[in-house]
Amino acid sequence: MAAGGDHGSPDSYRSPLASRYASPEMCFVFSDRYKFRTWRQLWLWLAEAEQTLGLPITDEQIQEMKSNLENIDFKMAAEEEKRLRHDVMAHVHTFGHCCPKAAGIIHLGATSCYVGDNTDLIILRNALDLLLPKLARVISRLADFAKERASLPTLGFTHFQPAQLTTVGKRCCLWIQDLCMDLQNLKRVRDDLRFRGVKGTTGTQASFLQLFEGDDHKVEQLDKMVTEKAGFKRAFIITGQTYTRKVDIEVLSVLASLGASVHKICTDIRLLANLKEMEEPFEKQQIGSSAMPYKRNPMRSERCCSLARHLMTLVMDPLQTASVQWFERTLDDSANRRICLAEAFLTADTILNTLQNISEGLVVYPKVIERRIRQELPFMATENIIMAMVKAGGSRQDCHEKIRVLSQQAASVVKQEGGDNDLIERIQVDAYFSPIHSQLDHLLDPSSFTGRASQQVQRFLEEEVYPLLKPYESVMKVKAELCL
């Protein structure tokens, strides 16, 4: 049975990233139509530049190519590739079939990587351009969430054990800070992308030097003109047959890092959902379990974690691919890159769409948070109580021993009897502590235990987050809708 299948058929496997999760716009960027249309555009740009620099290419040939950029006979191309065992030459023939007058000058002087690699770089750039505003929107939604809850005390956790208090907004800023680093890295790697350009079979530009009869300047002009037509500021000066596969490492490393950030955020949300302090959106008709109707599973956060793990592992592909590119190139890269580049971007696209949807509907339960604080705060307040007693004339050592005994009794009630923490009640009825009984409410005010959390939130948002989001103001209103 021949390899390949009808990918629109229910009898043929289709990647869930495309069929179930990723956005239509990201799927289109990695589609065959987008790819092969870009090949034709690159052939047109090459012909236009070659004509401008004096090669015998007519206006009629150029116009014929322009008129057929979208006229792609995919069936013919597939048949040609089956016959020739070469995808680029299959599309040269297919393009030439609908451009008979231009057929002889299509791909003039070029090698397969002229269309293959340059198209990949265009796709990487455009895919990054799709991700950047999506990530900015996630940051914006979380920034709104953090600002609104900047002063809401909550129990902090280290080692997932109760620690000092923080605020809900401050905790959210930990998430935002990681995503801001990801946004900066995505922008950097996007701006650092260079075009492969017009380089020939081993990167020496020998074929173009021959076409222009040894004119170095025209060869350099050709490279520059096509690079500018493709919208790049610069091209690699040095290439082998391909652009260095280190570029793929750079791009997928940034995406993998984004995956790590999203995994951490969504894990926190899942843990908070278990504590009943916070939940992701839950639709009115949504079913959490087929057997347990009360369940409210954090399905979206779980999906993000599941896909983020996949995204983090994909960076190993370009690392290994770059390491086995012998001399000017081997074909070890080809099949692998067809999979890992598309999957990385479709996965990143999915987790950003999902995280935006989550961040637009996060639900906080202040009463649950308050109750958990009441359970733990008495123990945390013991040092403040000791200091207040010393100020009232008591002995630190005597007070410490009193607190120690009462704390152990209260802990026994919590752990052995399943009761509430009654340390404060014990202190309130103990005559030894009568000098500070009137101060206990103040000493137990949760806001006095959150330090500068709310001020940190305000400063972080104003100095770091809002300036970073400013270039994306025009796209901030787009909502994230999930079908599944």
Results as ranks from 00 to 15, higher is better:
T350L: 12
M387P: 01
N274K: 07
I238Q: 06
K295P: 01
I106P: 00
K147E: 12
M278K: 01
E148W: 07
S407L: 03
I339L: 13
A143Q: 04
R371A: 04
Y13I: 12
F282C: 05
L222R: 00
L461N: 01
G197F: 00
V262D: 02
E70S: 13
E302G: 01
K415M: 09
I237W: 07
W45V: 07
T158R: 00
R33Q: 10
D398A: 14
R270A: 01
A410M: 07
T167P: 00
S447V: 12
L311C: 01
R20D: 00
F460S: 03
C399L: 06
Q320E: 05
N336Q: 08
H93L: 08
E60A: 11
E328A: 05
G419W: 08
I122A: 03
I249R: 01
A411E: 07
K170Y: 02
A322T: 12
F345G: 07
R14S: 15
T58P: 07
S207V: 07
D248P: 03
Q439Y: 06
E50Q: 07
R404Y: 11
A3W: 10
E81L: 01
Q41G: 06
G203R: 00
F30E: 02
A18K: 13
H93F: 09
K75N: 11
A344F: 02
N185F: 07
L132A: 14
V390A: 10
M26V: 07
S253V: 11
R309S: 07
H437I: 12
Y114S: 04
A381V: 12
R309F: 07
R329C: 02
I106Y: 03
L53F: 06
H217I: 13
E220C: 09
E417L: 12
R196N: 07
G109M: 00
M181C: 13
P467D: 09
E417Y: 11
V254Q: 09
G8D: 15
Q205F: 00
W43L: 07
D182G: 03
C98T: 12
A206E: 05
R296K: 06
G5F: 12
E60C: 12
D215G: 08
P378V: 09
N274L: 06
Q285H: 11
T202L: 07
I249L: 10
L275Y: 07
G116C: 13
Q63G: 11
K224I: 09
R296C: 09
L341S: 15
V189A: 12
T239E: 00
K101H: 11
D333I: 00
T167I: 04
Y466Q: 14
I72N: 09
P446L: 04
A342N: 09
F460C: 07
E343Y: 08
Q325P: 02
L331G: 04
L193M: 15
A49Y: 00
E25M: 11
H263K: 03
V168C: 09
N357D: 10
Q456H: 08
I72W: 14
R37N: 06
E417A: 09
R459Q: 12
H442E: 14
Q210S: 13
L444H: 05
H400I: 05
I176C: 12
P153Q: 01
A235I: 09
S448A: 15
M181D: 13
L155I: 05
Q205R: 00
M387W: 03
S151F: 09
C172T: 14
L179W: 05
S301K: 03
A392S: 11
R125Y: 05
C173G: 09
L469E: 03
K101M: 13
M312W: 05
L440C: 10
R245N: 03
A146Q: 01
A22M: 14
S23A: 11
A411T: 12
L46V: 06
P293N: 01
G240S: 08
L183W: 08
A431E: 15
D6T: 13
T227A: 15
D215E: 13
H86Y: 00
M26D: 03
R338T: 03
S261Y: 02
L468K: 07
R234P: 04
D73C: 09
P366H: 10
D441P: 11
G169D: 02
A18P: 15
T347W: 04
K402D: 07
Q61W: 06
H263I: 06
F28G: 07
D192Y: 10
A103D: 15
R137Q: 15
D182C: 00
L130R: 09
A127E: 05
L84I: 06
A143K: 04
F460P: 01
K101N: 10
G5A: 10
D422V: 04
D223W: 00
H442W: 14
Q164P: 03
Q51W: 04
T239I: 10
K147N: 14
Q458C: 13
E283Y: 06
I57W: 04
L186E: 05
V413A: 10
G54M: 09
F208T: 05
L314T: 08
E343Q: 12
V168M: 08
R372S: 06
F95W: 13
R171G: 00
E64L: 11
E425C: 09
L53K: 01
R14P: 13
C173L: 05
T204N: 11
F28D: 10
R83D: 14
R125M: 13
F236M: 10
T330Q: 02
S290R: 01
P378M: 03
T321K: 01
T354E: 04
G96E: 11
H93A: 15
G231P: 04
C99R: 04
Y21P: 00
N421Y: 07
